[in-house]
Simulated assay, not measured.
Amino acid sequence: MTSESSTLADRAALRAASPSRTTRGLLVCGALAGPVFVVTVAAQAFTRDGYDLRRHPISLLTLGTLGWIQMSAFIGAGLLSAAYAVGLRRALRPGPAGAWVPPLVGVFGLGLIVGGGFRPDPALGFPPGAPAGNADPMSWHGIVHAVAPPLAFTALVLACFVVVRRAVVLRQPCWAAYSAATGMVALALVAWPGQEGLSVRLALAVTLAFAWTTTLALRLLSGDRVASSGPRRV
Rank of each mutant, 00 (worst) to 15 (best):
V190M: 06
P137W: 07
A203L: 13
P173D: 11
L198Q: 13
Q172W: 12
R165A: 13
A155T: 05
A205K: 10
R201V: 12
A191V: 08
H141G: 00
A205V: 11
C160Y: 01
F153R: 11
S199C: 00
F210C: 14
A191D: 09
G197E: 14
P149I: 05
A177D: 02
V185P: 01
F210A: 15
A152H: 09
V163S: 04
L158K: 03
R166M: 14
A188Y: 07
R166E: 09
W175C: 01
L198D: 06
M184G: 07
A176S: 15
L202A: 11
V163H: 09
A146S: 13
V163F: 03
W140C: 00
T182N: 01
W175V: 14
M138D: 02
V164N: 02
L198V: 12
I143A: 07
V206M: 07
A176T: 05
F153M: 05
A167L: 02
G142L: 05
A181Q: 04
G142Q: 04
R166V: 08
R171L: 07
T154W: 04
C174I: 10
P173C: 13
Q172R: 14
A167K: 03
M184V: 09
R171S: 15
V168H: 12
A209V: 12
A205L: 13
L170I: 05
L170S: 13
H141I: 02
A155E: 03
L189E: 00
Q172D: 06
A186Q: 13
L208W: 03
W175P: 01
L187R: 02
D136N: 11
A186C: 12
G142I: 06
A177R: 07
Q195A: 12
E196W: 06
S199M: 07
V147P: 01
A176Q: 12
Y178F: 03
A191Y: 02
P137F: 02
